[in-house]
Write a protein that binds this DNA or RNA. Structure first.
Lengths: 173, 173
DNA sequence: GGCTCACATGTCCTTTGGTACATGTCCTCT
DNA sequence: AGAGGACATGTACCAAAGGACATGTGAGCC
């Protein structure tokens, strides 16, 4: 359960509403850490109950922005420095690849083309994002520097998968 | 829900018991597609109810091996060729990297060392596996050729992440 | 003034994943 | 003969994820 810590971490950057957080999850973490708004609102409620965050302001359209508390900041730091990292990935593309031998050659080629395109597009998208950051489009705070590191990981993973899909086309059937 | 199709795919290679399947999931797909035995037995029951698999043989120690049926093979093929791939990954390492700015430099360095080591070890483990396959240690069936492709993906992803962790150490804080 | 759209928050229900617990069986070693 | 360990299957429960549905609000435009 690290949605909890994902929210705390984002709130450590500054106050935000559930809506804001849902959008940030979607934009930055799209495929890498999906989170739907129902889960986010529910978790925010729980975090507030436990005193890890508190209501910062209420705005128009029932908007409710939260702010991290000292207890919350202590908790996210504790998580970052003492909890073990969960390294599971659950990549459906890899699970499927185990069963390529069941596919017709034509289907497989099409599939690998689609996969290569998808991963190359994703890599390109994150690469563009990285370049914008390097140009300074988003300023140069510690937060953006961390984000730059995250983006770099995304670029490298997607590029590795794109290369893999291309390589797989040449592998003996 | 692709545990279902993971099981069907593995059973397409030949009859196996829940225990066998749990071990194969653990060995080959360890971090890439974890599955606990309770889920596996439950899913096997459902697959049998739906006629996608059937009991092949009963052995000592209550062992029950299943065999894929024609309907089951049709279903796995249908899944492979017509269902969209789910590309979500949920990599906790990347989520955490967003919050590196909250960590003390010493903690962060230690963390990146651990991450680099973990990913490099994983890459090495899969690389050794790949080499054994290339030497022909596991024969040369279509199934092992598909497995070789899966392993190649694992090698590339883990290597990319290991390189990333090393790179992150040099990135400006 | 009314329409539409983005903003904003939530409930409810189903599926999936994971942990704990429980049980039975055969083999090997001492 | 007995102990321990790997083999083998399951139940029960809880946490997490995801989709469907519902509702209210302010801004901009025609």
């Amino acid at each position: 359960m690290s949605l909890r810590h994902g929210l705390l971490g984002l709130l450590a950057e500054g106050p935000a509403s559930g809506y804001d957080l849902a959008r940030r999850f979607q934009e930055v973490l799209g495929q890498i850490w999906p989170a739907q708004h129902p889960k986010i609102y529910a978790e925010l409620g729980r975090l507030a109950d436990e005193g890890l965050i508190e209501v910062d302001s209420e705005g128009p359209r029932r908007r409710k922005a939260y702010r991290i508390t000292e207890a919350g900041e202590a908790e996210i730091r504790r998580w970052l420095s003492t909890e073990d990292v969960d390294h599971t990935m659950r990549l459906q593309s890899l699970l499927r690849s185990l069963f390529f031998w069941l596919m017709e050659p034509d289907d497989l080629r099409r599939h690998l083309d689609d996969e290569a395109r998808f991963f190359a597009d994703a890599a390109a998208r994150y690469r563009a994002y990285a370049e914008a950051k390097d140009r300074g489009d988003f300023g140069d705070s510690p937060q953006t520097r961390s984000m730059r590191i995250t983006i770099e990981a995304a670029v490298r993973i997607y590029q590795a998968l794109a290369d893999w899909a291309e390589w797989a086309k040449t592998a003996p059937k």
